[in-house]
Amino acid sequence: MSHASTGRAPVEERRSLKELAGAGFGVLWAALMRLFEPPMAALQRVLGIGRMPYLFLLPNLAFFGVFVITPLFINLGYSVTGGTDLYLSERPFVGAEQYGFLFDCGSWIDPTSCREDRFWRGVYNTITFVTFQVAFMVLFALVTALVLNQEIRARGFFRAVFFFPVLLSPVVVALIWKWILLRDGLLNAMLLEMGLDRILWLADANWAMFWSVFVSVWAHMGFYTLILLAGLQAIPPDLYEAAEMDGTSRWRAFWRITLPLLWPNLLVVLVLALIRAVQIFDEVYVLTGGGPGTATQFLVQYIYNTGFANRVQNFGLASAASVVLGVVLFALTITQLALARRRDGAA
């Protein structure tokens, strides 16, 4: 609070503008909060002050319990039942049949040999996507963070430029790029201008995968750049000064100072990017619809199609596939937590 009085004039102005905008909302808010005063005071008299924290916790825990924890457990229930009924009590128990169906494969490397080949295509597409997307994501986020960490003019502006696509919705991101990649879009116009042939970017399986990776890196890179930038700025500058005095080249300074000190942050970024990439759905679904054919159909889209989009909603199979995805994500999250603990311990 004390900063406000010491702030310079522009900061003062901004504050007053913000206060003005918040005033209308504040009146509503206060009225709502005051409404709760008498009942909460009455409850406090009945329960005593020692039980008040439980009361404050109750709404949150109730929401978590009903909409997160309960679903997590009944998900297992759905994955061992069959039929098309919505409610678990009406569904026949089938044991591990759904899992058996998912994993019934002639050969592990050939998705066409599996009974549920759409699932395995989704798995292999996801593996391809994750491999390239995470590699490019970490690489470009690192390079961008290194560039933005230099002493350059208008650094705040450039940081904003690289960060802002993070805030765009997946639908907006996909449509921005779809418009550029259309048959008569900007990119093909450029190709023709350069004397090359038109390419149907989203109708070719390999190009569709390429653009899925490209667009998702474009959209999310700024987030990881910000994490890495914070890591870079935490490296004490006297290390570089000392290195410069010793006549160390910048290249060597990068390998000997920057990379080792940034390593913990890089690992965290890597695993975070992995967790997000495995769950890829929105942008690619709007951009390619999973096509051409099933070339860009990923695991989450398989779950969505099986459980919701297909004419016959197969909740059991969708749940079994979610459990498989959940196991993968759980392993990745545990890795992330372990890495984060090591980073914070080292710092």
């Binding site: 998900n75 229930g77 759905y78 409610y87 769950q279 779950i303 459980g307 994500l329």
Partner: peptide, 17 residues
Amino acid sequence: TLMIPITIVLVPTYVVV
């Protein structure tokens, strides 16, 4: 609960809702 993304509980959350 931070470790439970919506993508792995789509069916049961839908049923609850």
